[in-house]
Write a protein that binds this DNA or RNA. Structure first.
Length: 537
RNA sequence: GCGGGUGUAGCUUAAUGGUAAAGCUCCAGCCUUCCAAGCUGGCUAUGAGGGUUCGAUUCCCUUCACCCGCUCCA
């Protein structure tokens, strides 16, 4: 999966992220902290743009979705109801021989003869190891095979190959999960790995004040379903969306920011009617592009998959690096009817950006039962009462930011007039999400008229977009700097602009340089903001 | 959590049991009429802690972080 080329590619991207101020290690001056990352000036802009685009497409651009901004810490009862207190706490065991880790609840129970040992004595050095150990053999297997496994175990602790095993005894056991089915070796005691971050609310740090940092933003939406329904005057089908931080105490954060312990989610819960109370479907008329009142969960699910894919394309992710993964039935969570993952082909392999789950009405039903408050909805149209079902598109902001950077990263061979070849690094962001939209340069910085005019143009554009101003170094160098941070447009003020060039008819015009083609066109200052706004929206 | 690898300036690399060097980047100045030009000057580093030693970036121990494989990822 990860070959040396893709590792090198990833290293270049990580290096650029740091060098140009997209992403830093959290707490770097103290040596960092595993699984946490900070966004520098450009990364912060990039993330804002992603979230703004998502929010706009989800709620501002539609009538049937409203927003929510809930707290990170909620009543622990929320997590009891959702099942997270249980399911986010997996007991894990390690094989004492192979060191592999397993989920204790996924071990097949076995029966057979267990051989116990108190320790081992090295016949050569006389050294004793008094660590108890045991091996499970299927009935009928010769005990010598257990001794061989035990010698391997003690061998890893410093005993020689023909060490003497101490205190062997055997016992019949049934339906045990304490032994590795692959090699018969004893496991470590099961240890809980709780993926939720725990904290305490209030001054007393006791069991009664325990609270959790949310492991997903979705539950807040379910918990506030009734309130939002009441005030928004929405009718099912409708959605509630939210952007916010979530926390998971991952066993092993990996792949730069891809799996972090603190991350940001963009989630929509789209509430729909259960299939059994749907209004009668009208005769098909061919085109059903806009949502229809008679749609069942499958149509809504497909609708959101299509919507989300279109959105990713709208912010410039290449469609050919996106793929859909329909989770097979055996992989589905118990509450899900169908889940589609949208994967992006990162240098380290195809990985999930977003999951679109048809969750039935599991969550609202759980809160309905645990809180004792009704989550039912009365549908005027069909005169029926039900707990709405839900379609959940859930995306990771940080993963998307990383995908956008990977997708935009481009190295090109550029040959100059003198035939010298160099590598140009550019982040080819879609103008919608580029941290800086346009950079303004005076051609030369020791000519006050050029500098003054450039600052004027910068001030002209500033109310409409993120503008950079740069006068340091040769003009080519300034272009390359902007290429590397993904600025789509550069505007240069030259002598023609101020009417001191050869062609005085060019007064009041500037050159507009395109990042990807490196081509320049001459445009008037008057048109500039209008022209750019069209390109960046 | 296990195994392997790596840690010297923002980046890439050098060197040494005894003053840590260079190129690029960055900053300032000069110069420069459109794609990393030139000149001058400047900032910045041995991941952290401990040990051995007169003296440790170098040797030893611990720890932290990153990368790879396993594991995990309702």
């Amino acid at each position: 999966m990860a070959n040396s080329k893709s590792i090198e590619q990833m290293e270049k991207i990580v290096s650029l992220c740091k060098r140009r101020g997209f992403i830093f290690q959290s707490s770097e001056i103290y040596g960092g902290i595993n699984g946490f990352w900070d966004y520098g000036p450009l990364g912060a802009e990039l993330k804002r743009n992603i979230k703004d685009q998502w929010w706009r497409s989800m709620t501002s651009d539609r009538d049937d979705v409203v927003g929510l901004d809930a707290t990170i810490i909620m009543s622990p009862k929320v997590w009891e109801a959702s099942g997270h207190t249980k399911t986010f706490s997996d007991p894990m065991v390690d094989c004492l021989l192979s060191k592999k880790r397993y989920r204790a609840d996924q071990i097949e129970p076995q029966s057979g003869i267990a051989y116990f040992y108190d320790g081992a004595k090295d016949t050569e050095s006389g050294k004793t190891i008094d660590e108890p150990y045991s091996v499970l053999l299927p009935a009928g297997k010769p005990p010598e095979s257990a001794r061989k496994t035990a010698r391997q175990f003690y061998g890893m602790r410093g005993a020689s190959e023909n060490a003497e095993l101490l205190g062997e005894r055997s016992e019949k056991v049934e339906n045990t999960t304490r032994y590795n089915p692959e090699n018969g070796s004893l496991f470590t005691e099961p240890r809980p790995f709780n993926l939720m971050f725990k904290t305490f609310v209030g001054p007393l740090q006791d069991e009664n004040s325990v609270a959790y940092l949310r492991p997903e933003t979705a539950q807040a939406i379910f918990a506030q379903f009734k309130n939002v329904l009441e005030v928004s005057r929405q009718k099912v089908p409708f959605g509630i969306c939210q952007i916010g931080k979530a926390f998971r105490n991952e066993v092993n954060p990996r792949n730069f920011t891809f799996r972090s312990r603190e991350f940001e989610q963009m989630e929509l819960e789209f509430f729909i009617k259960p299939d059994d109370v749907l209004p009668e479907a009208p005769a098909e008329t061919g085109e059903v592009a806009p949502p229809q009142p008679h749609w069942g969960w499958e149509k809504w699910h497909q609708y959101w998959v299509d919507q989300r894919l279109a959105w990713y394309e709208s912010i410039g992710l290449s469609r050919e690096r996106l793929e859909l993964y329909w989770q097979p039935e055996e992989e589905l969570a118990h509450y899900a009817r169908a889940t589609v993952d949208i994967l992006y082909q990162f240098p380290f392999g195809p990985q999930e950006l977003e999951g679109i789950a048809a969750r039935g009405n599991f969550d609202l039903t759980q809160h309905h039962e645990h809180s004792g408050k009704s989550m039912e909805y009365f549908d005027e149209e069909t005169k029926s009462k039900f707990i709405p079902h839900v379609i959940e598109p859930s995306a990771g902001v940080d993963r998307l930011a990383l995908a956008l950077i990977c997708d935009a990263y481009a190295e090109e061979e550029v040959t100059d007039d003198k035939g010298k070849t160099e590598t140009r690094v550019a982040l080819k962001f879609h103008p919608r999400i580029a941290p800086i939209k346009v950079a303004v340069f005076p051609l030369l910085k020791n000519k006050p008229e050029l500098v003054a005019k450039a600052k004027e143009v910068q001030a002209l554009l500033r109310p409409w977009m993120n503008v950079a101003y740069d006068e340091a170094g040769a003009i080519g160098r300034r272009y390359r700097r902007q290429d590397e941070i993904g600025t789509p447009f550069c505007v240069t003020i030259d002598f023609d602009t101020i009417g001191k060039g050869e062609d005085t008819s060019l007064e009041g015009t500037v050159t507009l340089r395109d990042r990807d083609s490196m081509k320049q066109e001459r445009v008037s200052i008057e048109e500039l903001s209008h022209l750019l706004l069209k390109k960046i929206r």
